[in-house]
């Protein structure tokens, strides 16, 4: 009996050394990136799906339970998860994933953020003080975040540093090649006037040179009123945009309303992995995004 107890205690103490690094990713894109770089040495849990708005999630019991055992928490940051992640961190009782610890990684810190508000006032709607957090719509950001993430994984698990570096190099080469391909395919999109339902795509617009004329949401995070939509409609008649972009998880009524009244194509973009059936990983996410944008160019 005493021997069994000793064995159990030994296993309890030793087993973490054998186990893969447990990673808690708030959104699917960082989960996929961690898997690409960590390979078999990481065990990834993704907190949200492609059809969920990562801003509106609640600190569910399942998330707290998963965060309890995580070695690394990877979040977008820039206030995207501000409504629930701090609570999950606190309730998890896990000191290694608290902000400021090596086990807490914020992707937005490694890219330059766009749309930093000049005025911090909730009268502007749900603005993010640090800038727009939807950085995953520009594939070049994955290169930057990927490199930082490889270093972080190596810091947490030095035994596999070489593996992380090699995986990161392979991923970077493959993605760089794919970016050239996407940019070539998306060349006809340069300068194309578009509308967006929510200011979710500045990084995509910046990457492909889309010309964003406006947003259906007059204030971010607030559903547009009929008066605001009428204003968009009259602007659309004077200065027509080719298409209106909407993340797959967003309420479809405002963009549908506009499409019923003008010749504008509604383009539903996957936004992240799992947003559409086609977007299964980082590469198919952008394959699908570019394909849908090009489809949106066709005359309705």
């Amino acid at each position: 009996m005493k021997r069994l107890f000793t064995l159990v205690m030994f296993l309890l103490i030793v087993s973490p050394a054998w186990a893969a690094l447990k990673v808690f990713a708030t959104v699917p894109e960082w989960g996929a990136l961690t898997e690409a770089i960590g390979g078999s040495e990481v065990e990834v849990f993704v907190a949200t799906g492609g059809l969920q708005d990562p801003h509106r999630i609640q600190a569910k019991p399942s998330l707290i339970a998963r965060a309890r055992n995580a070695d690394l928490l990877i979040a977008t940051g820039a206030e995207l998860e501000v409504g629930w992640l701090p609570l999950v961190q606190r309730e998890s009782a896990n000191p290694s994933i608290q902000s400021g610890q090596p086990g807490y990684f914020e992707a937005a810190r490694y890219v330059s953020l766009l749309e930093k508000p000049a005025r911090l006032d909730r009268a502007e709607g749900d603005v993010h003080a640090a800038g727009n957090p939807h950085i995953q719509t520009d594939p070049r950001n994955f290169l930057r975040v990927g490199r930082a993430l490889a270093e972080r994984l190596a810091q947490l698990d030095p035994a596999h540093a070489a593996l992380y570096a090699a995986n990161e190099k392979r991923f970077r080469e493959r993605l760089t090649e794919a970016i050239t391909r996407w940019e070539k395919a998306a060349a006809p999109l340069r300068g194309v006037p578009i509308l967006v339902q929510h200011k979710a795509f500045p990084y995509l617009e910046n990457w492909l040179g889309l010309n964003q004329l406006g947003s259906l949401e007059a204030k971010p995070g607030m559903e547009p009123t009929s008066g605001q939509l009428e204003a968009v409609l009259s602007r659309q008649r004077q200065q027509p945009a080719k298409m209106v972009l909407r993340p797959a998880y967003q309420y479809d009524a405002p963009s549908r309303w506009l499409a019923e009244r003008t010749k504008i194509n509604v383009v539903i973009l996957p936004f992240t992995i799992g947003g559409t059936n086609e977007a299964r990983d980082i590469f198919s996410l952008f394959d699908d995004t570019v394909r849908r944008l090009l489809q949106g160019m066709e005359v309705r």
Binding site: V111, L143, R144
Partner: peptide
């Protein structure tokens, strides 16, 4: 910086 990521690794928001 872009290639090796050394400069990019410096947190982008730190300066601000």
């Amino acid at each position: 910086a872009a290639d090796s990521g050394q400069a990019a690794l410096a947190p982008a928001s730190e300066g601000s």
